[in-house]
Design a protein around this nucleic acid. Structure first.
Length: 255
DNA sequence: ATGGCATAGCGTCTATGA
C-alpha cells in the first residue's frame, strides 16, 4: 500500500501534475493540501476517469484539503472536533481499515504574529483530536503539510533559521506532543540522504541550490510501524514547468 | 540574503505563503 502527501499550491494550476503523478505511481492514497478552490470546482470527474475516489474540503483562495483513494472512502469527517475554524485545513476518512487524516497545519507567518498564536492553538486542538481518533482507530496515519521542520537536519541553514517560524521551540514541542501520542515520523524510520527536503522557496533559485526545509510529513501510529517498508521524497515534480513549491512525500506499507 | 517568486481575487494592487 502506498500513501502520499503533497501540498499542490492551487489544484486548479497543478491538476495536470497531480494526474500525471497518480498515473505514474498509482498510490493507494494521496492527500492534498492548498487546493485553493471551492468544493464545486474540485475535479472529481477527472480523478474518477483514472480510477480514483476523492473527498474535498475547500474554499476560495486559501487552504483546502483532499483525500484521493483507489479504494472506497469510509467515515469521512471534516475539521477538528471542538475547534471552531473557518479555514478548511483538515479532512479524515477510513480507507482499507486505516484512519487517514490529511492536515494543512497553519503557517504562522512569524513568531510575533497573531497567526502564530492561531497555529499553536490549532496544533493543541489537533493533538487533543488525535488522541480521540487513536482510541477509535489504532491504525492511523496523519499526512500533510505540518509547517514544522522537526529537527535542525530538516533545515538547510539551521543557524539562519534559529528561533524563527517553522523551527521555533513551541512549534517543535507541538510536533513532539504528536509523537508522544505514539505517532512516528515514517521518513525517519529509514536511512535517508542528508539534506532531504520537501519544500524549497521559489525565490533565490532555492531548489537548484537545495535551500529547502522538510516540513511535509507522514506520521504513523505504533501498530503500523512494523508494516512500513520505505519512505521517500519525490523531487521530480519540483523540476517541472510551473511546479508547486512542495513535492510529494511517500510511504510504502506492506499488506 | 529578510528579497529576488507564485497564486488568487475582481486587481493594475494586496494578502499570503514558508
Amino acid at each position: 500500500m502506498i500513501l502520499a502527501t503533497w501540498n499542490v499550491n492551487s489544484l486548479n494550476v497543478r491538476l495536470p501534475h497531480v494526474l500525471d503523478w497518480l498515473n505514474a505511481h498509482q498510490p493507494d492514497v494521496l492527500c492534498l493540501q492548498e487546493t485553493k478552490q471551492e468544493d464545486s470546482k474540485f475535479p472529481y470527474q477527472a480523478l474518477a476517469d483514472i480510477g480514483y475516489h476523492a473527498i474535498h474540503s475547500g474554499q476560495k483562495t486559501y487552504n483546502g484539503v483532499a483525500i484521493i483513494s483507489r479504494h472506497p472512502i469510509e467515515e469521512a469527517t471534516h475539521g477538528i472536533i471542538g475547534l471552531e475554524d473557518e479555514q478548511k485545513r483538515l479532512i479524515s476518512a477510513t480507507i482499507q481499515g486505516i484512519r487517514i487524516i490529511c492536515a494543512y497545519i497553519p503557517n504562522g507567518q512569524s513568531v510575533d504574529s497573531d497567526k502564530y498564536q492561531y497555529k499553536l492553538k490549532w496544533l493543541a486542538s489537533l493533538t487533543r483530536h488525535l488522541r480521540d481518533e487513536l482510541a477509535l482507530h489504532p491504525k492511523l496515519a496523519l499526512l500533510g503539510d505540518y509547517n514544522i521542520a522537526p529537527e535542525d537536519r530538516d533545515v538547510h541553514d539551521p543557524k539562519a533559521w534559529e528561533g524563527q517560524i517553522l523551527v521555533s521551540e513551541p512549534e517543535r514541542d507541538a510536533f513532539k506532543a504528536l509523537s508522544s501520542l505514539g505517532l512516528h515520523d515514517a521518513f525517519r524510520l529509514f536511512d535517508q540522504p542528508e539534506s532531504s527536503f520537501s519544500w524549497w522557496d521559489y525565490r533565490m533559485a532555492g531548489f537548484r541550490r537545495n535551500l529547502g526545509m522538510r516540513i511535509d510529513h507522514i506520521l504513523v501510529s505504533t501498530p503500523l510501524v512494523s508494516s512500513c517498508t520505505s519512505s521517500w521524497i519525490d523531487k521530480a515534480p519540483r523540476k517541472l514547468e510551473r511546479p508547486s513549491d512542495h513535492t510529494p512525500v511517500v510511504l510504502d506499507l506492506k499488506n
